[in-house]
Amino acid sequence: MQSTISKESSVADTRIKMTAFLLLCIMLPSSFMPEETVVKWLIINTLVLIFVLGILYFTWHKFKFDTVRYYSLQVYILVMSIVFYTIVPLFKLLNDSYYFWLIALATTVIIIMAHVLNKRTTLSFVNKKHKKLVMILSAYVTVLIFVGAVLSGMMHTNEAPENTGVSILFYLGGLLFIVLAPMFLLTKSEVDKLAKT
């Protein structure tokens, strides 16, 4: 969050190379799940990467003299891009199933709720008086790991397509990033205000 970022220089570093490297590390395994569509999704994911880097550059151009704000938005863009790459493999596997629409609806609801409740989530990290949400988030992570492991085992037992288990774990990890990302949209003044609440 912005309260943890120090203003070290008058002009912000774009961090485009670092962002590109991190996203590339996620993009490649995401493109190979499943392997039958690897060429198609390498092209799509590469175009998405270029688009994201373009957004990052324009964001830098607008906020380059406000390093705190830029670095916060840069993290948001990075994390939401990671979300895209981690949830896509499961959607590809469910493409011909009605489960696709159920997962799509659930994911959309989670994204909306995470952005609506971003101040409450941030409050649990910056204010010592509000730690219940941290406990809830910890429980949420534990449940995700457990459910992911169970689903992975079940899918492999039922001779599911290759990489199904990994795709599920990627998706569940993406859900966690969805919850955390909106916190970085808050301005420094909003975070400071929450810290004093």
Rank of each mutant, 00 (worst) to 15 (best):
residue 145 I to F: 14
residue 5 I to D: 02
residue 43 I to Y: 09
residue 56 L to P: 10
residue 78 L to D: 01
residue 44 I to R: 13
residue 176 L to M: 12
residue 53 L to Y: 00
residue 69 R to Q: 04
residue 158 N to M: 10
residue 2 Q to F: 00
residue 134 V to P: 02
residue 197 T to H: 06
residue 132 K to E: 14
residue 105 L to C: 13
residue 45 N to V: 09
residue 193 K to F: 00
residue 178 I to N: 02
residue 143 V to W: 04
residue 62 K to Q: 08
residue 110 I to D: 02
residue 185 L to A: 01
residue 109 V to I: 13
residue 40 K to A: 15
residue 81 S to M: 09
residue 33 M to N: 07
residue 62 K to N: 07
residue 16 I to Q: 12
residue 134 V to F: 11
residue 128 K to C: 03
residue 42 L to K: 01
residue 122 T to H: 04
residue 182 P to K: 02
residue 47 L to Q: 06
residue 111 I to Y: 12
residue 25 C to Y: 06
residue 97 S to H: 08
residue 173 G to L: 13
residue 59 T to E: 09
residue 64 K to D: 09
residue 101 W to N: 15
residue 178 I to R: 01
residue 105 L to N: 08
residue 141 V to P: 13
residue 71 Y to T: 01
residue 48 V to P: 09
residue 191 V to H: 00
residue 51 F to D: 08
residue 108 T to E: 07
residue 169 L to Q: 12
residue 90 L to I: 08
residue 66 D to H: 05
residue 137 L to Q: 14
residue 22 L to R: 04
residue 85 Y to K: 04
residue 154 M to W: 13
residue 5 I to K: 04
residue 158 N to H: 10
residue 130 H to F: 12
residue 190 E to I: 01
residue 122 T to N: 05
residue 91 F to Q: 11
residue 123 L to T: 04
residue 113 M to A: 14
residue 116 V to S: 05
residue 37 T to H: 09
residue 189 S to V: 01
residue 45 N to T: 10
residue 99 Y to T: 10
residue 181 A to S: 12
residue 31 S to T: 08
residue 71 Y to D: 01
residue 175 L to H: 02
residue 93 L to Q: 13
residue 197 T to E: 09
residue 12 A to T: 06
residue 156 H to S: 12
residue 15 R to N: 11
residue 61 H to V: 13
residue 178 I to A: 02
residue 101 W to T: 15
residue 84 F to C: 11
residue 168 I to Y: 05
residue 125 F to R: 00
residue 195 A to L: 00
residue 83 V to E: 03
residue 108 T to L: 13
residue 2 Q to A: 02
residue 100 F to C: 06
residue 162 E to T: 10
residue 114 A to Y: 03
residue 52 V to K: 03
residue 67 T to D: 13
residue 192 D to V: 00
residue 120 R to I: 07
residue 173 G to A: 12
residue 24 L to R: 04
residue 83 V to A: 03
residue 111 I to Q: 10
residue 39 V to P: 11
residue 186 L to F: 00
residue 44 I to D: 09
residue 163 N to A: 15
residue 78 L to P: 02
residue 139 A to R: 13
residue 195 A to I: 00
residue 132 K to V: 13
residue 137 L to N: 14
residue 12 A to L: 01
residue 105 L to D: 11
residue 54 G to H: 03
residue 52 V to T: 08
residue 153 G to K: 12
residue 161 P to S: 07
residue 192 D to Q: 00
residue 194 L to V: 01
residue 104 A to S: 06
residue 171 Y to D: 05
residue 35 E to R: 12
residue 77 I to F: 00
residue 22 L to N: 04
residue 39 V to W: 15
residue 88 V to R: 06
residue 85 Y to M: 04
residue 146 F to R: 14
residue 148 G to Y: 00
residue 154 M to V: 15
residue 82 I to R: 08
residue 127 N to A: 05
residue 95 N to P: 01
residue 170 F to P: 09
residue 94 L to G: 08
residue 183 M to H: 03
residue 65 F to V: 06
residue 67 T to M: 14
residue 11 V to P: 05
residue 184 F to M: 04
residue 133 L to E: 14
residue 185 L to K: 08
residue 58 F to P: 06
residue 167 S to Y: 09
residue 163 N to V: 10
residue 43 I to H: 07
residue 95 N to I: 10
residue 171 Y to E: 03
residue 113 M to K: 10
residue 83 V to C: 03
residue 187 T to P: 05
residue 9 S to R: 15
residue 149 A to Q: 14
residue 121 T to F: 15
residue 145 I to Y: 13
residue 35 E to V: 12
residue 145 I to R: 08
